[in-house]
């Protein structure tokens, strides 16, 4: 490593586009949130009114809280159901159960499939009239199991979450798996010689080594959960599916920001306020990760 001004020449071009197209937009979103603006014409400074609208005005706040609730429900499912499944899957592949190589590939595969194709698949499976599931149930004579699926208020959300999970679960799995592979063999051998059961070995010996990857997956999943857009939009449509069951913050944001052609109402300031709220939630999660999680998990080292 050496001193020379040449670094400026290397960093400057990237710095420019990164700043102009990533960092400034992030900052400006804050600024817009204090204005009433339809995207054209005058911007009127209205202070915190957009935020009041989000939190207090009955209709808007209803939409906002419903969507945020869905984001959080999905996040909790990702943390308390998907992460344990990801750990289990990684472990099964790690201990090399029969077929582990194929499983790793096939479980990861949906991740490389575009969301619009995943949307197409879910239509193919769950469509009430022509979908595979209903056709299958009718074929084997169990019509009573055929359902409306995404058209059913109670099933829509869990179904969507399963579809999202099907597509994304492989990522966390391979991250945790890579971490498992880095556990020193001697440590595990020692525990086997000491007569630890498989369960004890996993719980007491291997799991503590997995903290870094689990924290990473936790944060990635949380951010992913809070910024859901593609699949809910493709499957449920811009208005958040039946009874708002498939509505997420990013959809609400999209509706009011680019919504003119969809529902005749554009409110850029309101949209920006939503993205600021989203920003703050993600920022707090990053903070929680840095302060709480690390302290909690790395207690011994501090």
């Amino acid at each position: 490593m050496h001193r020379s001004r040449a670094y400026r020449g290397f960093i400057a071009p990237g710095f420019l586009i990164y700043t102009l197209f990533m960092i400034i937009p992030l900052g400006v979103a804050f600024y817009y949130s204090f204005f009433s603006w339809s995207g054209m014409g005058d911007m009127i400074f209205i202070g915190l009114d957009n935020f009041k609208k989000i939190f207090l005005e009955p209709r808007m706040s209803g939409i906002f809280w419903n969507a945020l609730g869905n984001n959080f429900s999905y996040m909790l499912i990702a943390i308390f159901i998907f992460i344990p499944i990801q750990i289990l899957l990684a472990y099964l592949i790690h201990i090399e159960i029969a077929g582990h190589k194929a499983f790793k590939l096939m479980i990861f595969l949906p991740y490389v499939i575009s969301p619009s194709i995943v949307g197409f698949f879910s239509l193919l499976v769950f469509d009430p009239n022509i979908g595979m599931l209903n056709t299958f149930f009718t074929m084997i004579g169990f019509q009573q199991f055929a359902g409306a699926w995404f058209g059913n208020v109670n099933q829509a959300f869990p179904l969507l979450v399963s579809v999202i999970g099907w597509q994304g679960i492989g990522v966390g799995m391979v991250i945790i798996l890579a971490n498992m592979k880095s556990i020193p063999g001697e440590v595990v051998e020692a525990s086997i010689i000491d007569g630890a059961s498989i369960w004890n070995r996993f719980w007491r010996v291997e799991l503590p080594f997995l903290k870094p990857s689990i924290i990473n997956v936790f944060v990635l999943s949380s951010i992913f959960a809070l910024t859901q857009f593609d699949l809910p939009f493709i499957i449920g449509g811009l208005n958040g599916g039946i009874d708002g069951k498939l509505d997420f913050l990013n959809l609400v944001f999209f509706r009011y920001t680019f919504g003119d052609s969809y529902n005749g109402e554009t409110a850029i300031g309101f949209g920006a306020a939503i993205s600021v709220v989203l920003f703050c939630i993600i920022f707090s999660i990053a903070l929680i990760q840095n302060l709480v999680l690390k302290r909690l998990f790395y207690r011994d080292e501090i």
Partner: peptide
């Protein structure tokens, strides 16, 4: 890495 581009999409659109 921390903030997905969706959050900034609106100002980005205007730029």
């Amino acid at each position: 890495l921390m903030f997905p581009i969706q959050i900034a999409i609106l100002p980005l659109f205007i730029i």
